[in-house]
Amino acid sequence: MHPFRYAEPESVAEACRFLKRQGTSAMPIAGGTDLLSEIKDGVAKPESVLNLKRLPSLAHIREQDGALRIGGMTTLSQLQVYPVLRRNFRIIEEALSTLATPQIRAVGTVAGNLCQRPRCLYYRHPLFLCAKKGGTTCFALDGDSRYHAILQNDLCPMVHPSDLAPAFIALEAQVLLAGPEEKRLLPLEEFFLLPGQNLSRETVLKPGEILVEVRVPKPKAGTRGTYLKFRERGAGDFALVSAACSGRVLRGTVAELRLVLGGVAPIPFRARQAEEMLMGQRPKKEFFAAAAQAVLAAATPLSGNRYKIEAARTLMVRAMQAVLK
């Protein structure tokens, strides 16, 4: 592996200042499973690496008024065994159980999962200097596109690889970002950027900013949730398509619904059209199918990924069936 220097900050503030000062030559590391792959594959070439994982202030899980506050450096396995998860945050538990492998969950962190880089075969390949890496071409658009996006895919058809992100967004999670000067809190949904907004990065993180906490509000009584993941291998695989759904039926009609897809777009894709169509409706399978159809009408599949439309339709319908009853 290409050599780099290494530092362990004493505090978040120190980490932020250092990262801001060093610019892109410094990179934060947490569990390391994603960053080290990128370094070994020559995709990332940091001069220095800053270990955030030893910051004790970032590895907490707390409940506050029923809401969950998860430190960015909480490992996925710590989160997985957190008792209250099964009771109130079923989607998160289901997403975690499908995510990576036990060894990765043991070191991988919540912030690392949300900030991981895309798995596009061309982006990760040292021999392709793709547009995202500063080149001029996207090789996937007319190359092998079986794992790529069917929505919002005109510029760079990468898909966002996180399982946690759709689950959190379906629960209206917020993220707390700490920078050298200030902290800011924003909905996780607004944390991700489309390639049209920034081709080389996937998040709104500014130089020197790090994701320090995820806040998940407590779902209202009667809310159900599920995370469905469709993949080729039974474990240790990224989603071809995934669907996170959270919703509530009150007096026979849909009172609340959030539906978020993974594996279909460069960001976790919020299926707002479906949500709007179903609000106030009786939860019936025909309506679910129509709502899914409306979402997928916008799909622009590439030569190798048409199948994802049908798979996404199925997952949306099944997720809504599981939740809205």
């Binding site: 079986r146 469709f230 080729e232 071809l240 199918a289 159809q293 997928l296 190798g304 990924n305 048409r306 199948y307 439309i309 049908e310 798979a311 339709r313």
Partner: peptide, 14 residues
């Protein structure tokens, strides 16, 4: 015989 190939062959709903 991947899911993609199977879905491409099935009469699809959409």
């Amino acid at each position: 015989i991947t899911p993609g190939k199977i879905l491409d062959q099935l009469p699809l709903k959409g």
